[in-house]
Design a protein around this nucleic acid. Sequence first.
DNA 1: GTGGCCCTGTGA
DNA 2: TCACAGGGCCAC
Length: 277
Amino acid sequence: MPELPEVETVARGLAKKLTGAAIEKAEVYLDKIVRPDPKSFARNVGGAVITGVGRRGKVILVELDRGLIAVHLKMTGGFVFVPAGQPPARHSHVRLVLRDPAGKVFETHYSDMRQFGWLHYLDPADLDQAEFFSQLGPDALAVGQKEFVGRLAGRRGRLKPLLLNQSFVAGLGNIYADEALHRAGLHPLCPAESLTDEGRRRLHKAVRQVLREAVKLGGSSIANFKDAEGKLGYFQTKHRVYGRSGQPCPACGCRIERIVLGGRAACFCPACQPPVA
DNA sequence: GTGGCCCTGTGA
DNA sequence: TCACAGGGCCAC
């Protein structure tokens, strides 16, 4: 479900609950969910101690004393915390049995209705790690104006697909790409090469702003997105264009339009976001 | 670039 | 019953 703000919310929750805990056992119920393969995943993860939880773009990084688990939630992934010994629910595919520093045993289950997500164990000695992240651009929340503008200046093609391209910047998905474009006053079909320097700076500012505000509100709870503690986010109440086609633009009252771009919906205000920048 | 596909569920 | 869903990869 999640884009950067939701992933950040989940990662913060996991950091609180998991840091310092030892993984006593890992069980995999759906083989294709884990990499490199279920056996080596369970073997390598079992017995490790979690030293912290971070994030890069939409990928959660569970840092271990020997390697790390990279997790992509894709559309419907998430972690559920349950009492020790509770059997996995219908869509739970991986079970981690944990022991906190005080000795208390608890469990977290990775749940994923659509089975698109994955958990990838990476060995610290493995050269794959560098390769693994080489495909990701700078984090959309952390990228500075100079770098963003510089990367944008070399690009061609429409703005919306570019914002969704994780090798350009990592972390934006359909919601926040639409919201950032609206805040920047840029049309989703606007060619990247037609932007002025001022337009590029405006887009950078909009991206940073919308993500910061969303993180502050715990992300957007659509289709029951919840954080690691089962709490809902509130940013969905602040959406200006996403999922609001036919409704009035909060900035100008004009009707929000919806087009399909690369197989995905793109919502925008035809007045605030004119076709040419 | 577009369309299909990996899946299941929901709402019209 | 069908369209659609926040991601991303692949073949064309």
